[in-house]
Simulated assay, not measured.
Amino acid sequence: MKKIAIVLLFTSFLIPAMAQSPINLGLKGGYSNSKLVTDMNAINEGSVDNYHVGAFARVTLGRIYIQPEAYYSSKGGTLEDMTNSLPEAVNSFDLKTIDVPVLFGINVVDKGVLKVRANAGPLFSFFTDKKLNGNSFNDDTIKDNYFGWQYGVGADFMFLTLDVRMENSSGDLYSGPYIDSDVRSKSVVVSLGIKLL
């Protein structure tokens, strides 16, 4: 009984301290739905469900904050040629990346232990593994990194964080023959995090 009382007492002091600290560090992970998109009408774009895990830091300056993150992410998709003009009708992509977004945000609602946030910022993404199934693409036709953007909303409750974001690459990921069109990455990212500091 004494141990439980000590833990509850410690937690009652820790949570307000975490809520008031201008610097937070934590771990996060979650679900993502991603696909590759082109501007070609004859290509059918398919999405895949994946995951991400990593860490974040947040520096709060009044109502605004800066939040750099780094996480390992699985993404990809399918591109299906509806005209069969490509060497293989369906090409699937299983891509692994290290993603480094730097988000700038504002606390829209700040009620002590509950915060509702909006944020946006640049994303730097580096491929660590590229598995492609299809004759139109191979490892050499997908670039090694790309620049993009993330934007979305989030909420904090005590030491827990929840984020829902859109992610778009800003440059062409494809550098090979057969397709005279930009190929870009697009994702919906949902993550749950815990503040350790």
Rank of each mutant, 00 (worst) to 15 (best):
T11I: 15
F93K: 01
Q67D: 04
T141E: 14
I43D: 02
L25H: 03
Q20R: 13
D110W: 02
L173V: 10
M1W: 11
F10D: 06
D172E: 06
L86G: 05
L196P: 00
V7K: 15
I23Q: 03
L86K: 05
V59C: 07
G148P: 04
T11Q: 14
F147Y: 11
V59M: 13
R58M: 12
P87R: 00
P22T: 00
D99V: 07
G112R: 00
P68T: 02
D94L: 08
V100Q: 04
L173N: 05
G176V: 13
E167D: 15
Y51I: 07
L36V: 07
F10E: 10
N145Y: 08
D81H: 00
N107C: 06
L196T: 00
N135H: 11
S175V: 12
L103C: 08
P22W: 03
Q20F: 10
P16Q: 02
G29M: 00
S175P: 05
Y178W: 15
L196H: 04
W149N: 07
K75G: 10
S92M: 07
I142Y: 05
G30V: 02
L9F: 14
Y51S: 11
N44D: 14
N168E: 11
I6W: 11
A57L: 03
V59L: 13
N41M: 09
A57K: 01
G105F: 06
G112A: 01
G30C: 06
I43E: 02
K2A: 12
G148A: 03
V48P: 14
Y178H: 13
G62F: 01
G193W: 02
D139M: 07
G62E: 02
G76C: 04
K131G: 12
K186F: 09
N133T: 14
I66N: 04
M18T: 12
